Structure formats: C-alpha cells, structure tokens
Amino acid sequence: MRRSALLVSLLSASLVMAGCASTEYSNTAKGAAIGGVVGAVAGKATGNHKDKRLVIGAAVGALAGAAVGSYMDNQEKALKEELSGSGVKVVRDGDKLRLDIPAQLTFDINRSDIRSNLYPVFNDIAKVLRDYEKTMLVIAGHTDDTGAYQYNMTLSQARADSVKKYLTAQNVQAIRIETQGYGPSYPIVPNTSEANRALNRRVEIHIEPIVQ
C-alpha cells in the first residue's frame, strides 16, 4: 500500500509540473511524464498489474460501475467501424476486448517487421486506442508448432514488440502496453493442417479497462 501510494503521489507531481509548462500538452508529452515515474515500480515496467493500473489511473483516470460497460461498448463499436474489411477480428469477452490479427497478413515469413501495406490498419487501431486511453493493452504473439520451439518463441516476441513499437510511434502511451511472445504454446485449433496452422499464426491485442 505504501509503495502504491508513493507511485500515485510521484505521478501526480510529475503531471502537475508538466502542466505548468503548458496548459495543453500532447500525448507524447503525457507519455513522457508517465514514463518518468513508472521506473519506481519494482521489477519490470510490465510487471505488477495492480501498480500499473494505479499509475495509469492517476494519469488518465479510471472507470467505475456502469461506466465500464458503456466505455467498452463504445470502444468496441469504434474498433469495428475502423477495422471493417481489414481482416482484423474484434472479439468481446465481458468487459474486455481482443483484436485477432492474422500473422500472414501482417508479417512476411520469418520476419517481425510489419508490412507497409498494413500501416493504415494499425493507424486505425492506434486512433481508437488514443481515443479510449483508460485501458491497458497486452500484445501477444503466437506461432504454429513447425520449426524449433525457441525460434518460434523469439519470433513471436519480436512480432509483439514490433506491434508495440508501431503503436507507440502513433502516440499510444507505452506505459499502457505489455508484450508477450507465446510461440506455439496456445494454439486456438490443433496444428493438424496448413489451414489450422495459419489460424494459429497470429498477434492478439487484449484490451482491458482500468477500473477503480
């Protein structure tokens, strides 16, 4: 409790100082203010979810009660409108959202850099994420089970990191985003055919509301 309270106090002070310099500051500047404080969290910046929610909540506010469902309803609608026809699926699970992004659309074989023709799709994703900033994001990379296990783990992590890098370049705050490469560990269908393996090669963006 003492550490969490200190985090919130430090972040509040940081944001006030940033505000004194300018009454309106950009998402980039806000992200820098948050980033200056998150180092106080013990362990990795992507570690304790509770501490992370406190840090983000202090910066952008948190949701409570009926506001959570309404906020996620509106975000789901905005994502579906922006991503219609893109090949990206928007999946709702309670008050959480998941974007399923086929890897074969996003990356060349054995590569982790996003194909340039997919930039507009990720720009649309970033636009909605900026508009609905009271959320945490986990970007998860997945592969099929062909090839060496460790290679697939490394590739899936690199692809998740590549998506994070692109989104932060579009002014989605880095503190809101975690990445994880799972390799072949979590297939959505058995790897028994090429069609199934294609489904398992994917990147998912999990979107979770920040609640009080």
Rank of each mutant, 00 (worst) to 15 (best):
V8H: 05
L10Y: 06
A13D: 05
A18M: 08
A18D: 06
A18L: 06
C20L: 12
S22E: 06
T23K: 03
S26Q: 09
N27T: 11
I34P: 00
G36I: 07
V37S: 10
V37K: 02
V38Q: 13
V41G: 01
N48H: 14
R53Q: 05
V55G: 05
G57P: 05
A59W: 08
G61Y: 08
G61V: 09
L63S: 15
G65K: 07
G65R: 09
S70N: 14
Y71H: 15
M72I: 15
N74C: 04
A78Q: 11
A78N: 15
L79S: 14
E81P: 07
E82H: 12
E82F: 05
G85D: 12
S86H: 03
S86Y: 14
K89L: 12
G94E: 11
D100A: 04
D100Y: 04
D100Q: 01
I101V: 15
I101K: 00
P102W: 02
L105N: 15
I109N: 11
D113L: 10
R115V: 13
R115I: 09
N117D: 11
N117R: 05
Y119D: 13
Y119G: 07
V121F: 02
F122R: 05
D124W: 01
I125K: 01
I125N: 02
A126W: 05
A126T: 10
K127Y: 15
L129P: 03
L129K: 00
Y132L: 02
Y132N: 06
T135V: 15
L137P: 00
A140V: 04
H142M: 07
T143C: 08
D145K: 04
G147W: 05
G147S: 02
Q150I: 12
M153C: 11
M153W: 09
T154Q: 08
L155H: 06
R159D: 05
R159F: 04
D161I: 00
V163L: 00
K164D: 01
K165F: 11
Y166K: 04
N171Y: 09
Q173V: 08
Q173R: 00
I175G: 03
I175R: 00
I177F: 08
I177L: 12
G181T: 05
G181D: 10
G181P: 08
Y182G: 09
G183V: 09
G183N: 03
Y186H: 11
Y186G: 02
P187D: 10
P187K: 06
P187G: 14
I188K: 07
V189W: 04
T192H: 01
S193I: 11
S193W: 10
S193V: 13
A195Q: 13
A198I: 10
R201Q: 08
E204H: 07
H206E: 09
I207N: 08
E208N: 15
P209M: 03
I210K: 02
I210D: 07
I210N: 04
V211D: 06
Q212I: 08
Q212R: 05
Q212C: 02
